[in-house]
């Protein structure tokens, strides 16, 4: 028991004293997660609008695939991207394995279906009159798209934050594609696994506490944006 209370004390101490190594790992995690979230969102939002608004023959099939991909295990994405970027893969010549780019690729694939599905649901839930009204107000196609995004903005931001939360806490992709290289691909989750194995429990615990705080903040933000008080009036 004394061991654990000592570990907790040391973990808090690492956080309060802003331990350099600890901050480095947190910064790497945030950098990679932010990059993959930005890339995935840039692709997911227009894709969600198309799925929600356009009629095409493969729409039902597309929606089924999208819903299936929501529960995609991170290691499956890891293996898939590994087969692409490993030395014998079709992208092997670019030497992406055990690099930040490799992790970003994997994480982008992981959250692309999640953000797309959440944004699609937000757009589905919008009042159909919005589109007719936009047209009657004299909006061009581009302005209609902008109005749609503005109306769905809280749902979209919520979806992006949810995606960010998912990549921040994943370990499979970072471990398989990143290789846990200090200062480059060592994320909070891979560092926690490594440091626990090494017996440096307090360091892993400190990262766990930070991850927990970040997760809580993210979930609070999503709740506030999508279901918070006076949401309708914002």
């Amino acid at each position: 028991m004394n061991y654990y209370s000592e570990a907790f004390r040391e973990a808090f101490n690492l956080i309060i004293t802003l331990d350099r190594e600890l901050l480095n790992v947190v910064a790497t995690s945030l950098r990679l997660s932010t990059s993959s979230t930005i890339i995935a969102s840039t692709i997911a939002v227009p894709m969600a609008v198309i799925i929600a608004r356009k009629d095409f023959s493969a729409k039902k099939f597309f929606n089924v695939i999208l819903n299936t991909l929501l529960s995609l295990p991170t290691v499956v994405v890891g293996i898939f991207v590994y087969s692409l970027i490993s030395r014998r893969g079709i992208l092997g010549e670019y030497q992406l394995l055990f690099s930040s780019t490799g992790i970003i690729m994997g994480q982008t694939i992981l959250i692309l279906p999640l953000i797309t599905a959440l944004v699609r649901n937000t757009i589905f839930s919008l009042d159909e009159k919005l589109y007719k009204t936009a047209k009657s107000l004299g909006a061009t196609k581009k302005q209609q798209f902008k109005l749609l995004i503005m109306e769905a903005r809280y749902g979209i931001i919520g979806a992006v934050i949810a995606g960010f939360g998912r990549v921040l806490g994943e370990i499979g992709i970072s471990m398989m594609l990143g290789g846990n290289i200090r200062g480059v691909t060592r994320t909070m989750t891979t560092a926690m696994a490594l440091e626990t194995n090494k017996g440096r429990f307090s360091f892993a615990l400190a990262l766990g506490i930070i991850l927990l705080i970040l997760s809580f903040t993210i979930n609070f933000l999503v709740y506030f944006l999508q279901e918070g008080e006076h949401y309708e009036q914002r």
């Binding site: 009042d127 009159k129 919005l130 007719k132 009204t133 047209k135 009657s136 004299g138 909006a139 061009t140 196609k141 302005q143 109005l147 503005m150 109306e151 903005r153 914002r234």
Partner: peptide, 19 residues
Amino acid sequence: NCELRRRFSVIWQEPYLYR
């Protein structure tokens, strides 16, 4: 197109007001 539609306005039975 919208260029022509901009000469018109519509008042709907159930108006949609933007956020």
